[in-house]
Computed example of a mutant assay.
Amino acid sequence: MAFEEHLVEDARLVILKELASQNDNRLSETMLGHVLQIFGHTRSREWVRAQLRKLEEMGAVKLTEVGTVVVADLAQAGLDHVERRAFLDFVRRPGLEA
């Protein structure tokens, strides 16, 4: 696997974990971009949006456009991945946490 693929899979996991940590399981693409930057994924808004669309194709998130911003809502498949009940291809598996 190419290094870029590892980065993409890690970024997708960061997105899912951050959505799962929210009280309502939702965040805007802008806020997710800030979270990704904290974890070392400094990418454009278009790149973040592309990852969200891919996660939507997988059934991991549901996207809603609010004006010019995309809001991601964690879907059951995304939560199952974060909680290690079922795994999604092309998303890094979460580690075991105590």
Rank of each mutant, 00 (worst) to 15 (best):
A2H: 02
A2G: 02
H6T: 08
L7M: 09
V8Y: 04
A11W: 10
A11H: 06
A11N: 08
R12N: 12
V14G: 07
I15G: 00
I15E: 02
D24M: 03
R26F: 05
R26E: 11
R26M: 09
R26V: 10
S28L: 04
T30P: 00
L32Q: 05
H34A: 08
L36I: 06
L36H: 01
Q37F: 05
I38V: 11
F39I: 02
F39N: 14
F39P: 01
G40S: 10
H41E: 04
T42S: 13
R43Q: 07
R43L: 05
S44Q: 11
S44W: 04
R45L: 09
E46M: 10
V48P: 00
R49K: 15
E57N: 05
G59H: 14
A60I: 06
A60C: 10
L63D: 10
T64V: 13
E65Q: 15
E65L: 13
V70C: 03
V70T: 14
V70S: 10
V71H: 00
A72T: 02
A72K: 00
A75K: 14
Q76C: 07
A77E: 11
D80W: 06
H81F: 02
V82F: 04
E83L: 12
R84A: 09
R84T: 03
R84Q: 04
A86E: 12
A86G: 10
F87S: 06
D89F: 03
F90I: 06
R92D: 15
R93Y: 05
L96M: 10
E97F: 14
E97N: 06
E97R: 10
